[in-house]
């Protein structure tokens, strides 16, 4: 499932490559499933760990957030986590989450729902 390959010929530094679609699924939706990647990443002897996103179609925002947390944790341990073969939608999801981590929005969302009871609701569209 995990393969150790010498793919960085320039630096001659071994990398651990983890194929996300094989380990998890083509759509990575759940936050807790990303935790399954954490153990082999942390245990890896290589300083560089590559998550290969070939055949991964989409990741949720929660999954992207969890991946970035792991990346930061690894960085603090002087290890590097990189994402390869990432499609443009996954790239954008990672960018949105990273931007939110770097510059969190201070404005709180508004919630101004009208209060009513079930018997007052009309069944037709719109609400």
């Amino acid at each position: 499932m995990y393969k150790l390959t010498l793919i960085n010929a320039m630096k001659k530094e071994p990398k651990t490559v983890i194929e996300v679609a094989k380990v998890l699924a083509p759509i990575v939706g759940s936050r807790d499933v990303v935790d399954l990647l954490k153990a082999p990443i942390i245990k890896s002897d290589s300083r560089i760990v590559v998550l290969d996103f070939s055949y991964v179609e989409f990741i949720s925002r929660s999954a992207a957030h969890e991946l970035l947390l792991i990346k930061e944790e690894l960085h603090q341990k002087d290890k590097e986590l990189s994402f390869e073969n990432v499609n443009k939608d996954i790239t954008e999801m990672l960018r949105v989450v990273a931007a939110n981590r770097a510059l969190p929005k201070t404005e709180k969302p508004q919630f101004k729902a009208e209060k009513t009871d079930i018997n007052s609701l009309r069944e037709e569209l719109p609400v």
């Binding site: 729902a113 209060k115 009871d117 079930i118 609400v127």
Partner: peptide, 18 residues
């Protein structure tokens, strides 16, 4: 309780005896 949303309309709905 239920929240029912359609586009910009939001209704917080009480569900008595439920």
């Amino acid at each position: 309780s239920a929240l029912v949303v359609s586009k910009d309309k939001e209704k917080l709905v009480s569900l008595p005896n439920f």
